[in-house]
Design a protein around this nucleic acid. Structure first.
Lengths: 189, 189
DNA sequence: GTAATAAATTAACATATGTTAAAAAAATCA
DNA sequence: TGATTTTTTTAACATATGTTAATTTATTAC
């Protein structure tokens, strides 16, 4: 939890009152590799997770049974099924741990209460969201303009340690190709 | 400008003081079809645009000369080069008008001042951003799991009037395919 | 340490889409 | 209204990636 306050304090001054409120709405959770935080189809998604350590991913299984990794999350990243978390309805993504993880968990209504009481925390969150929004924009632009090989090259530059943590078929599905295609790419010069 | 206050008032109560400040930082602009609001490569992007009427798109031209449409914007949507607007550096996207347009234009620093003075407007913006974030997440999920034909079907459902406003090659490049492939898809049953 | 299971690679063939070019249709301009 | 330009369609061929299956390698469980 001190790590989280350090992370916040990099950007805004957090006083003791804010720390107290945050401590009261956030749970520190530990999960083992393979454990599931959110399950596709569960009736709603109320929680978001901040990664203190470890690595997680979110994925969807579509109608033909194929699995597509939507997001990886490492230390200092947030993860949830944001489509259901910010929107309405049941979860369309599953969130699972690729390694043993320590995360902070909180629900949306509690976080909104913190924002009401401490608008500077809301501002910080907004700027974080703007950064995430930029990352998704870049990802879409890259998806449109790069072939599979170039997307893989960018991915390994952006997430240097991911190949030692995620399975190749996770990475392939994140890139929008099959594991056979990724193997083919990895073998090429 | 009254349309904009109506749009805001759908969600939050805007008092006269807020209206006055907003009026002082927002310019109403009119553009003709084909005009350019942001040019790829321009040294920085300080402005965002709210569409009162008409239709715009943003696109990137990559190294091989191909053009990829990143976003369409219709009435009540915001558009900019958000990678450069929220991030740093020169524009990587071009924003152009597909029809005659009326937009509201404001710069980021002025908008931040409005947020400081009226935190409820910042909250409204944050929720808007959350909705946009959800749309991008959905787009990525769709890009990963749907083939070109299904993406086209979804697109025409999401933007029913776009085909009468945008060129087919714009739509094809938004979907991540060539105009020949889009023609092929449109001809199929 | 070994057996069982999961992950990764490889190959042959199939399919979706890209590329190139030409022709037709539509839009724009004078 | 006709000429010009742009957009769209179509066809033939090329390429990137998918599919299926088999084999190899790595990991996990006992």
């Amino acid at each position: 939890m001190q790590d989280f306050f350090k992370y916040l304090n990099k950007n805004i001054d957090i006083n003791d009152e804010a720390k107290f409120l945050i401590s009261s709405i956030i749970k520190i959770r530990e999960f083992k590799k393979g454990e599931i935080l959110i399950t596709q189809g569960q009736s709603k998604v109320t929680d978001t997770y901040f990664v203190l350590s470890g690595c997680l991913r979110s994925y969807v299984i579509c109608e033909n049974g194929k699995e597509h990794t939507v997001q990886f999350a490492i230390k200092d990243w947030w993860i949830s099924d944001y489509i259901a978390y910010y929107g309405k309805g049941e979860a369309i993504l599953t969130v699972e741990c690729l390694t043993d993880c320590i995360v902070l968990q909180s629900d949306k209504l509690s976080i909104e209460k913190v924002f009401e009481k401490f608008p500077e925390i809301e501002t910080f969150h907004r700027k974080n969201l703007e950064n995430s929004f930029v990352r998704l924009n870049k990802r879409i632009v890259n998806q449109l303009q790069l072939n599979a090989r170039d997307r893989y090259i960018n991915f390994t530059a952006d997430f240097p340690k991911m190949e030692s943590v995620a399975k190749n078929y996770h990475i392939a599905s994140y890139l929008g190709i099959t594991q056979q295609s990724l193997s083919r790419i990895r073998t090429q010069k």
